[in-house]
Simulated assay, not measured.
Amino acid sequence: MTLDISIILPARDEAGNIGELLSEIGRVMADTDHEIVVIDDASSDGTRQVLALARRRMPQLRVICHESACGQSAAIRTGVMAARGRLIATLDADGQNPPGNLPALLAPLLQAAPEARIGLVQGQRVNRQDTWSKRWASRFANRVRNALLHDGVSDSGCGLKAFPRDVYLSLPFFDHIHRFMPAMVHREGWNVVTVPVTHAERLSGRSKYSNLQRGLVGIVDLLGAAWLTGRRKLPQTHELPMGLADTAGKDQPPLPRTRTAIVQDPVLN
Rank of each mutant, 00 (worst) to 15 (best):
L3Y: 14
D4A: 12
I5G: 05
I7M: 02
I18R: 13
L21N: 14
E24W: 04
R27L: 01
V28C: 10
H34F: 03
A42S: 14
S43R: 08
G46A: 15
T47R: 05
Q49K: 11
L53E: 12
R56Y: 03
M58I: 11
L61V: 09
V63P: 02
C65P: 07
A69K: 13
I76G: 14
T78V: 04
M81H: 15
A83K: 11
G85K: 03
L91M: 09
A93L: 04
Q96T: 14
Q111E: 10
A112Y: 02
P114L: 01
P114I: 01
G119V: 00
V121F: 07
Q124L: 02
R125F: 07
T131R: 13
R139E: 14
F140S: 07
A141P: 06
L148E: 05
H150C: 06
H150W: 08
S154Y: 08
S154K: 11
P164H: 00
P164V: 00
R165C: 02
R165L: 00
Y168Q: 07
F173E: 09
F174H: 07
I177P: 00
F180Y: 15
M181T: 12
T194I: 01
V195R: 10
T198V: 00
H199A: 05
S207W: 00
G215P: 01
L216W: 10
L216N: 15
L223F: 03
R232K: 13
H238R: 14
G243H: 10
P254E: 04
T258C: 11
R259Y: 09
D265A: 12
